[in-house]
Structures are given as structure tokens and as C-alpha cells.
Simulated scan of single mutants.
Amino acid sequence: MRIVDTHLHLVYPERFAYPWLDGVPALNKPHRLEDYRREAAGLGIEAALHMEVDVAEAEMEAETRFVLGLGPPIVGAIASCRPEHAGFPAFLERVVAIPGVKGFRRILHTSPDDLSGSATFVHNLRRLAPLGLPFDLCVLARQLAVGRALVEACPDVSFVLDHCGVPDIAGGLDPWRAEIAAMARLPNVSVKLSGIVAYAGPDWTVETLRPYAEHAIGSFGADRVVWGSDAPVCTLGASLTRWVEATHALLAGFPETEKAAILSGNATRIYKL
């Protein structure tokens, strides 16, 4: 079945600075398109969106331009941004003019909880609504209420909640379960089935992941779920191949139409591919 990967990270350390990788030695090395392409080709992944990799702030725009020139299977990019800055409108105008920009993200899970609550942040993020561009929301499970407040403050903006809201799988379903249900009640947010293998511990099985995947899908509905590899971050818990295999196992009981929506159809609609 055709797959659109909505969450591919590429790392080119000879071109860009990735300050956060100093703290993650297992990932602190090149991750190039040719490496991903080689593995993805046999897995049904026909298209991919590059997800910004939190490069040094001065290099955000350059990263977007670079990855969009790399070629297939990349069909677009979700660009890094800083809505908390007064200069955001000018930045936005430049970046949306780049062919292939399909959305934006500002990393929040490693930022102060009050960052996204400022009037400047909210006002600037609302600028995405008339452009029809979604905002990927990356928050920890304990920050889901913070993320929900941002979604509520920007009702005309489309949001995609990354990594099923980053559940603490070792710690159990609660209070993540209730927070996901609350987030799903907001009509302008979808959820991304991605990333959870990186938080599942080394001995995870499909059954370890199943309660989290099924609750996220059940809460949002199959028409508001997209899939992402989170490569290469997924390799902290599994290879790309194993994550794709686990995804198929998790979706085995779903109707074919819903599986197709989750794996490609919803991404095509939400990111306007």
C-alpha cells in the first residue's frame, strides 16, 4: 500500500549546525537522502515530506531551500520558524515563496512551556490560516494542555500533533490518554502516527505500541491521522523497516479505505501534496 512519509529528517553536518545533536550521540552523524531512499524504496514509501531538524536559527531558511533541491522522494518540506519573533511576518513571506513549502514547525517540547502562549506567538501563527499551511505541533505528553491552548487560540489554523503527543510508554497510558481525547475534540487538529518507537524502550513489541496507536486513531478518527517515519530518530528504537512493519501490523484490523487514508490520503489532503 502506498505510503507518504510526513516526517523525514535529514542531517548534513557539513552544511548546517544542529546544536541539539551534541546531546544525542547515537544520531550525531550524517543522515543523507540516499541512505533513506535505499531503505524506503522497498517499503512502499513513494513520497516524503522533510521535517525541519532544528538547525541553528540563522540557517533555517537555508535548510528548507537545500532539502527541497534534493529530489525524489521528497515532495515538500515542513519549514522551521520562530513565531515568537517580531520579524516572523517578513520571514514567512520569504519562505512561503519557496516552491514546495507545505507547512511549518517550531519545536516546543524542548522550549519553555509559556513560549507558545505569548500574544506575539499566537498572532503570528494565525498568519498561517489564510495561506492554508498547517503547523506541526511537537509537545511532550505533559505539555499537551499547553498545546491544546495554542490550538484553541488559533481556531482557523490546521495543526498536526506529532508523535501521538509523545506518550511516556514506560510510564503508562495515563494521563496521556485523557489529554489525547481532549485534543481530539478540537476540529482543527490531526495526529501523526510517528515517533512512538523511540519512546517504547528496547524490548518493545507491536502489542506494546498498540494501546497508544489505537487510542490516538480512535480519538481522532481515521480521517485525521497521518503517518511519519521520524527517520532517523526512529532508529533509537527501531529501524525504518521495522517501524513500517509494525505500522502494518497495527493497522491490520482496519478497513482498507482507512489504512489508505492513514498511510497516504490524509497527508495528501492536509499538506496539499
Rank of each mutant, 00 (worst) to 15 (best):
L137S: 13
S158M: 14
P130A: 03
L173R: 07
D136Q: 12
A145V: 08
P187C: 06
D174T: 00
A153Y: 08
H163L: 01
W176G: 09
D168S: 04
P175W: 08
L125F: 06
R142P: 02
V157C: 14
L150P: 11
H163N: 03
R142K: 15
F159I: 02
V139K: 12
G172Q: 06
C138P: 06
C164I: 08
H163S: 03
L125E: 06
F159W: 05
L150K: 14
V122W: 09
P134Y: 12
F135R: 08
R127V: 01
G172K: 06
A178T: 00
N124Q: 09
D156T: 01
C154M: 05
N124L: 06
V166C: 14
R142T: 07
L125K: 13
A170C: 00
L150G: 15
G172L: 02
D162G: 05
P187Q: 07
L128M: 08
W176H: 08
F159M: 03
L186D: 05
G165Q: 09
E152R: 13
D168A: 04
E152N: 01
A184W: 03
G172T: 02
V139W: 10
V189M: 03
A178H: 04
A184D: 02
A153F: 05
L150I: 08
L125N: 10
L161R: 13
I169A: 02
W176F: 04
A170W: 00
V146L: 09
N188V: 05
V146R: 14
L186G: 04
G165I: 04
L133S: 11
D174M: 00
P130E: 03
V146I: 10
G132T: 11
D136M: 08
I180R: 05
I169E: 02
R127Q: 08
L173K: 02
L144V: 04
D156S: 06
R185E: 05
C164F: 15
C164E: 07
R126K: 11
L186M: 04
A129K: 11
A149F: 10
R127T: 03
R148T: 04
L131E: 12
P167Y: 09
A182P: 01
P187T: 03
P175H: 12
V139E: 06
D162M: 02
A178Y: 01
A181C: 01
R127L: 10
L150A: 15
A181R: 07
V160S: 14
